[in-house]
Amino acid sequence: MVANKFELKPGGATREAFGKTLVELGRESKDVVVCDADLSKSTYTHLFAKEFPERFFSCGIAESNMVAIGAGLASAGKTAFVSSFSAFVLNKGFEQLRVTAAYPNVPLKVVGTHSGISIGEDGPSQMSIEDISLACSLPGFSVFSPADEVSMAAIMRLATAHPGPVFIRAGRAKTLVVYGPDQQFEIGKAIELVTGTDVVLIAHGLMVAESLKAVDLLAAEGISAGVVDMHTIKPIDREAIIRAAQVGAIVVSEEHLVDCGLGVRVAQVLSETKPCIVEYVGVQNTYAESGTPDAILDKYGLRAANVADAAKRAIARKRG
C-alpha cells in the first residue's frame, strides 16, 4: 500500500511554514524585508515582525500600495516579500504586480496565503481560485504551489535565491506531510512520488496528498497509478509531463478553477508534444460557499475519491 510509504501524518499549514521560514531567512540576511496589509497574524508574518520590527513594513489594508512599496524595496536591492491572502494580493495588487514587478523584472517575492477553497467558513470573497492563472500570466514570474510544510520551507529558500519575481501559494488549512526532511527540491523540476502504469495523477498543493490517497483507492481495484507533484507551475516541467503521458491517461487535480490552472498548462504541453487523455479535478465554473474546510472539499469534489473517479474515467477513455 502506497500509504505505508507516505505516512501522510498531520503537519502544519503551509502559511505557518512560510512565516517560520521567513524568520530563518531574516536571521540569515539583513536584506530580507517584509510588507504586510493587516493580516500578519493570519499569514504568520507576525513572527518576522516580532523579531525584526525595523524590517517589517505595515502597509495597512492597501494591497496595491503594498505591492509597489515592495517593488520599490526590491528595486533598491532588498529581498522584499509582500504577503496577504492570495485573493487580495493577486487581485487587488495585480496591476502593480504587472507594472512594478513583472514588466521591469524586479525580483519581488509574493506570497499568497489562504489560497483555494479550503479556508472554509470565511467564504468565497476570501477564497482564491484564480491566483495560479493570474500569477502565470505575468511574464518572468515563477509560480509555486507547495504541497506541505517541508516543500514550502524548501521552496521559500529556492524562491529567495532566485533572481526573478516569484509567486508562492500557501494554504490556511493544516496539510498532511508528504516529504521527509531530506527531500531535495529544484525550481521547475516536478517530483515523481509514485510510478504507475495505468494512469498518472498530477497535482499541486493539498491535492498532492489526495492524489497519494487515491493511489491506494485505485490499487484496491487493481489499477496502477503514479503521482507527480508539480510544485513549480511556471516554469513547468515539460519532461515530467511527457513522461506521464507515456501511460496514456492523466488526471490533473488542483484547488483552483479547472478552466485556467495547472490542468490547461499540462494540456498545452501535451498538445505540443504527446497528446494524451486528460481528466481534470478542481473547482468548476463557480464560486464555493461557507462551511468547514472538510465539508467544502467534499462538496466541491476535491477529495481522493474524486481523483480516483477521474482516473477511472481517463482509463476507460484510453481503452476506448
Binding site: 524585508v33 505591492v67 520599490g72 528595486s75 502593480q96
Partner: peptide, 17 residues
C-alpha cells in the same frame, strides 16, 4: 512607469530601503 498612480509607492519603497 506609464500606468498612473504607482510611482509614489515605488519611491517610498526605495526611501525605506
Amino acid at each position: 512607469t506609464g500606468s498612473l498612480g504607482e510611482g509614489l509607492s515605488l519611491g517610498l519603497g526605495m526611501a525605506c530601503a
